[in-house]
Design a protein around this nucleic acid. Sequence first.
DNA 1: AAGCCTGACAACCGCGACGGC
DNA 2: CGCCGTCGCGGTTGTCAGGCT
Length: 263
Amino acid sequence: MGRPPCCDKVGVKKGPWTPEEDLVLVSYVQEHGPGNWRSVPASTGLARCSKSCRLRWTNYLRPGIRRGSFTPQEDAVIAHLQSLLGNRWAAIATYLPKRTDNDIKNYWNTHLKKRLQKQQAVGAIFAPPPTESAACSFSSPSSLSYASSVDNISRLLDGFMKASLPPPASSAPTTQSSQSVSDAKDKPGHAAVHFIDADEYPMFPAFHDDGCCISGSFASDQQQQVPLSSIEEWLFDEAVEPKMMDQLASSSDECYSLVPMLF
DNA sequence: AAGCCTGACAACCGCGACGGC
DNA sequence: CGCCGTCGCGGTTGTCAGGCT
């Protein structure tokens, strides 16, 4: 038996999403919660297939996700997890709750993999440090298209959050913080992995948005809902591939000097 | 100044897993 | 128990912007 197409090929729009479409999708999710994607096109009138709607939500519109600017710590975590788990991006993404699997996958394919391959080929010692390279400096998305405009999404969501949710008691006025309010509880499918906190990765105490400072406030974070599962212990306890960490450390500027402290 | 090349990222496609009937 | 529908994941492609020659 043949697999039915995920959606009608006729009349289904493809390509970049427009603000109007995003608005419709966000509105729908606000009202019904994420899930039941099959019914989204019919319910909203969007000329998109269900998969496209789900992907757009999970990869871009979903509250709590951070875009751009992978920190060196995130670099290290991704590289380490990739070495342990392979290309299981969804699993890796659970340890970087603010990153989507698609983002991590793209980042790996376009940055980390090339870097590691290059260093393996040349040798870590003489690998030229990619000063201000991807790891530490691509904080500003180059694309100015709508789809890459965080401001657009932020405005879009912000309006809906204000309209449909009471403001958080003392949340920072950032989109991420406000968005995160409704996220975890809306995602039964993600129940196993909570969006831990709007601003921290508690399992990686050194994580900060600036990426280059150590907080040392791990204790306070531990009381949060953290999936400190066996894999975290695994991350911390297992002998980290010294080769990889050496590569990471040698592959960049001082930002990576903190990496060994993480593990 | 124009054309070409490369990198980055959003989105699509196909497949497998899972759950309901 | 098997079939069907839906969802989620990973691989891949397409498009666009910026840099380089």
